[in-house]
Design a binder for these strands. Structure first.
Lengths: 333, 333
DNA sequence: CTGAAAGCGCTAACAT
DNA sequence: ATGTTAGCGCTTTCAG
C-alpha cells in the first residue's frame, strides 16, 4: 500500500529514527531536516502506522466501551459523553453492544484484550461478576464501571446512588399523598437498589410495602405498557407508579392512554434517568435524573489516569441523582 | 505483560509457526500437538496480539463509523444496527462523533487511517466533499456512505430517496386539504432534498411555493420549537408544518403546547425518520420512516465485501421511505 | 506435519 | 543532531 517510514527516510536522506523523531516531536532535530522530512511526508500523504507503534509498547490509544444498546437514548447519551471526553484526551472508543448478554460481554472482553485496547469502560447488568473478573481484572486490563457498581470488588467506578434515587422518588410520591404505589422494576441490580430505596422511604413513613404491586421485567416501552396494564387493571389499582427508567415509565403513560386514564389526574407516573424522552412525552415526565454527561467525562478521566499510571488509588465515585419534577405527578385526589 | 507466542511455543516444545497455526486453524497440525498447544494457551490465558497480526498484512477487523451525535436517537439506532451487523461479520466498530464539524471529520479520517481500520462508514452532512476525497478516497481506504449520498462521486452508499420522502409528506398533507404548509428544514443536503420533493408535490398540484414559510436551521428540539413559534405567530400562520426530522417536529409540537394550540386540530405536524421519539409524543407523530436497521445492515455488508475484495462494482442503494400515519395530522378544518 | 527465518512498520536505547 | 540496531508479536513462505 502506502509509503512507510523507510520510504520517507530514504527520500529525505535521513534515517528512520530521524523521521520517527519528527513525527513524534521527540529528540532534537534541526529545523532544516525537520522541514525537509515534513515536506516529504506531506508530499506522499504519509500516515504513520499506529498499530506498529503500539506494538513497540506505546499505547494503542483506544478504549473499549461495553454498553447494552445504543438505540436506547440513555445509553446513547452515555456513549456520546464518553466518546467526547475520550477524544479530547486523544483516545478513540470502540463500541461493544451487548444487550446485557453475559456471553457477548465475555466475548467482547477477550476481543478487546486481543486488540490491546488500553482500557475498557463497562456498563452492564452484572448478574455475573465472574466473567469480568476472569477476563479483565485477572489479565490486568485497566477497567472502569459507569452508571453501575459492583460493591464487592475493588474497581474504578462512577455511578449514582440508586438507593437514594429510589428513596427520592418515593418521597416525592408520598409527599403528594400517594400510598398505593405500583413499581415497575427493570431486572438488573441497580434497579433493585432503586426499589430498595423506595421501600425504605415507605418504611420510614410507617407504610407497608405491598409485594404484589411490584413487577419485574426487561426494559422496553412495550413491557412498560404491559406491566402498567397489569397493575391498573387490578381491582385495587395504585394511584401512582414508579418505573425504574424512563422507557418503562413511557410505556406506563401509554397504558393510561389505552385505558382512557389521564396522567397525572388519574395516575401519577415517575420515571428514572431523565433522558430526552422524559421531556417530550405528554405530559412531560417527572423523573429522577442521572448526570449522564458528567458520569461519562469522569469515568474517562479516571480510566485514562489509570492507564497512564497516574492513579494511585482506585476510585469509586458516587454521584447523587436529582428529582426533576415535571407534569406527570400530582397530589392524589 | 502477558505471555506471547514465543512463550507458548517454548512451553509446548514447538515452534511459533506451529502455535500460530493452531491459533488460526491454518495448515495441518496433528491432533496431538494441537491439543498440547491449546492446553498451554488455556493455562496461561494467552490472547494473541491482533495488532501484531494486523501488522503482518492481515485485516485489523475494525471499522470506523463517522456519525454526528449518538445522543440523537436516529443516529443511535443507526449505530446500533451497524455495530450489530459488524459484530456478526467479525468486525469491531470505532465510533467517531463529529457533530457535523468538517474539521473534526477530517481529523477522524486521518486518525482512522493511522489506526489502519479496514474501512469506514460515513454519515455526515457533506457540505464539503473535498475532505473525504482527499483523506479517504485518495489513500484508497474502503468507504461507504449511510443515510446520505454524494451523487457526484463514485462511492458505495445506502440511503433513502429523500426527494420521494419529501414528496410523500407533502402529498399526505395536501390530501388532507392543507395548502399553507410551514417547513422547518435542517441545514444539510439531504433535508434540502426533502424540501425539493415537497415543493415538487406542491407544484404538481398547481400550488405556489411560499418561500417565506420555510425556515432553515440546525436540528434540536429547541430550534424546532423556536422556528415553529416564528411560523405560528405570523398573521397568516400555516395549518400544517413539515419538519425534516422528528426532533424538529417534536419542537414544533412543543411550540403548540406553549401557544395553547392543539395538534392535530389546530395544526397538523409531520416529521421525518420515525425514531422512537415519534411513537412517544402526544399525539404520536405522523412521520416519514427511514429503514434504519436495514440501512445499517446493508452498508456493513457492502463495506465488508469491498474490504474482502468481493465487490466488483461500487453500489449505490436507494431505499424508499415510507409514510407512517399516526395522530399528528388530520383534515384541515 | 513441523520449524527456520524473513519480514510487517515503528520505537528507543545507544552510538557517533 | 543524526544514525544503527535490536526488538515488539505475529504470519507466511519454504525446507525438511
Amino acid at each position: 500500500m502506502g509509503i512507510n517510514i523507510f520510504g520517507i527516510a530514504k527520500e529525505a536522506n535521513v534515517s528512520i529514527a530521524t523521521v520517527s523523531k519528527v513525527v513524534n516531536n521527540t529528540g532534537r532535530i534541526s529545523e532544516k531536516t525537520r522541514k525537509k522530512v515534513l515536506e516529504i511526508i506531506e508530499k506522499h500523504n504519509y500516515t504513520p502506522n499506529l498499530l506498529a507503534s503500539a506494538l513497540t509498547g506505546k499505547l494503542s490509544y483506544t478504549l473499549g466501551l461495553i454498553i447494552p444498546n445504543l438505540a436506547n437514548p440513555f445509553f446513547g447519551e452515555i456513549a456520546k459523553s464518553v466518546e467526547d471526553r475520550a477524544r479530547e484526551l486523544g483516545f478513540s472508543v470502540m463500541i461493544c453492544s451487548t444487550d446485557y448478554d453475559a456471553e457477548r460481554e465475555a466475548w467482547y472482553f477477550t476481543l478487546l484484550q486481543k486488540k490491546r485496547v488500553d482500557g475498557v469502560i463497562i456498563l452492564s447488568g452484572f448478574e455475573d461478576q465472574h466473567t469480568i473478573t476472569r477476563n479483565l481484572v485477572k489479565p490486568n486490563m485497566p477497567i472502569a464501571l459507569i452508571a453501575r457498581d459492583i460493591p464487592t470488588i475493588s474497581i474504578n467506578s462512577v455511578s449514582i446512588d440508586d438507593f437514594v434515587g429510589g428513596y427520592e422518588a418515593a418521597k416525592h410520591l408520598l409527599g403528594l399523598g400517594h400510598t398505593r404505589i405500583g413499581l415497575i422494576v427493570e431486572n438488573i441490580r441497580c434497579a433493585k437498589e432503586r426499589l430498595r430505596g423506595f421501600n425504605q422511604a415507605l418504611e420510614d413513613q410507617g407504610l407497608q410495602f405491598d409485594e404484589s404491586l411490584v413487577i419485574l421485567g426487561d426494559a422496553s416501552v412495550q413491557n412498560g405498557k404491559k406491566f402498567a396494564l397489569q397493575l391498573l387493571e387490578r381491582n385495587d389499582p395504585p394511584t401512582a407508579i414508579f418505573a425504574t427508567n424512563d422507557i418503562l415509565a413511557i410505556g406506563t403513560i401509554q397504558a393510561t392512554h389505552e385505558l382512557g386514564l389521564k396522567v397525572p389526574q388519574d395516575l401519577s407516573v415517575i420515571g428514572f434517568d431523565n433522558t430526552i424522552l422524559a421531556t417530550i412525552t405528554d405530559p412531560p415526565l417527572t423523573t429522577v435524573a442521572q448526570p449522564m454527561e458528567q458520569m461519562g467525562r469522569q469515568i474517562v478521566d479516571i480510566l485514562v489516569q489509570e492507564i497512564k499510571g497516574e492513579l494511585t488509588h482506585k476510585q469509586r465515585i458516587v454521584l447523587l441523582p436529582e428529582l426533576v419534577v415535571r407534569k406527570s405527578t400530582r397530589e392524589r385526589e
